[in-house]
C-alpha cells in the first residue's frame, strides 16, 4: 500500500508564550519553538503501522520553507520511507485552498492508495484534507481514530461528539484526517534523526508541479489574515497574587463560598 502523509511545521503551543510583533500584524516569531503538528505524528505513526502489516511505502510531504525540511526528517526518523518538500516563493500567502491545490498537484503525480492528514493544525482550521479529497474526486472522512485495511476498501471509525464512533466503509484511494489518540506515536531520538540526516529529500516548486499560479499564493487567496490580536475578553479571571500561602488562603475562602469545600 502506498501511503502519503501531509505534515506541517507549526509553533509549539506547549513551548511558547505567544507575543505579537510591534506592528501587531504577526506573531513575534524570533524566539518561537517549532515542531511537527501534533495530529500529524499520529497520522505518520498510523501509516507506519499499516505498512508494517500489509507492506508498502510511507511518504511524508509538506508545503513549507527550507526549515520545514526538519519536520520531514523527523517523520522519516519515525519510519517514513520518503519525503517531499514543496517549496517556492510563489506559495507564500496561500490560503487553505492554495495549500490544497499545491498538494493535489503533487499527489496526482504519484499513485497513492491512501492520503492522510492531521485533523487540524496550528490555525485550527481542519480544512486541507477535505479540500484535497474534493479536488481529487476521492472520498474523505475526517477525525478518524480507527482503521481496518481491506483489499480495495478500508473501514474507518470517525470520532464524533461524546466520543462515539461513526463507522464508514471507504473505497480506495481515499483521503482521511487523523484524530489524536488513534495510536501512541513512537519516540524519536537524536540517533534516529542522525540516521536520516543525509537522505535526499526532493524539493519541488510551482514549475515542477505545474500548478495554476492564479490558484495559489497571495493572488489566489480568497481568505487573508489581516492581523493578529489579543482579544479583550472583559474582566477575565480574578488573578490571585502573593505568596503561595496567601494565594491558598484566598482560594480556600472562595472555594468555601462556592461550595467547593
Amino acid at each position: 500500500m502506498e501511503i502519503l502523509v501531509c505534515v506541517k511545521r507549526v509553533p509549539d503551543t506547549a513551548e511558547n508564550e505567544f507575543e505579537l510583533n510591534s506592528a501587531g500584524n504577526d506573531l513575534d516569531r524570533d524566539d518561537l519553538v517549532y515542531s511537527v503538528n501534533e495530529w500529524d505524528n499520529y497520522a505518520v505513526e498510523e501509516a507506519i503501522q499499516i505498512i508494517d502489516k500489509v507492506g508498502g511505502n510511507v511518504t511524508v510531504i509538506t508545503v513549507g520553507d527550507d526549515e520545514s525540511e526538519e519536520v520531514l526528517r523527523r517523520e522519516m526518523a519515525m519510519g517514513a520511507n520518503d519525503g517531499i518538500l514543496l517549496c517556492d516563493d510563489a506559495f507564500d500567502g496561500s490560503d487553505g485552498k492554495g495549500i490544497a491545490s499545491i498538494l493535489k498537484a503533487e499527489i496526482e503525480k504519484g499513485s497513492y492508495d491512501l492520503v492522510m492528514t492531521g485533523a487540524q493544525a496550528d490555525e485550527g482550521a481542519g480544512q486541507i484534507g477535505g479540500m484535497v479529497a474534493a479536488m481529487l474526486g476521492m472520498p474523505y472522512a475526517s477525525l478518524v481514530n480507527k482503521i481496518e485495511i481491506g483489499d480495495d476498501k478500508i473501514i474507518v471509525g470517525r470520532e464524533i461528539e461524546g466520543g462515539n464512533q461513526e463507522m464508514n466503509e471507504m473505497q480506495l484511494p481515499c483521503v482521511i484526517s487523523i484524530q489524536t489518540g488513534i495510536n501512541e506515536p513512537r519516540y524519536v531520538g537524536i540517533r534516529g534523526i542522525r540516521k536520516v540526516a543525509k537522505v535526499d529529500i526532493p524539493v519541488k516548486g510551482a514549475g515542477d508541479l505545474g500548478v495554476d499560479p492564479e490558484s495559489i499564493g497571495e493572488a489566489g487567496a480568497k481568505t487573508k489574515r489581516v492581523d493578529y490580536f489579543v482579544p479583550d475578553m472583559g474582566e477575565g479571571a480574578e488573578m490571585l497574587e502573593g505568596s503561595t500561602d496567601e494565594i491558598i488562603e484566598k482560594l480556600i475562602e472562595r472555594l468555601k463560598a462556592k461550595g467547593g469545600l
Binding site: 490560503d95 487553505g96 485533523a119 481542519g126 480544512q127 486541507i128 477535505g130 479540500m131 477525525l143 481568505t223
Partner: peptide, 20 residues
C-alpha cells in the same frame, strides 16, 4: 464533527471561499 467533515470539500465543489 459533521461540519468539519462536509464543509471544506463543499467549498471546493462550489468554488467558494472557505473559512473555518
Amino acid at each position: 464533527t459533521f461540519g468539519m467533515d462536509l464543509a471544506p470539500g463543499l467549498s471546493v465543489k462550489m468554488d467558494s471561499a472557505y473559512a473555518a
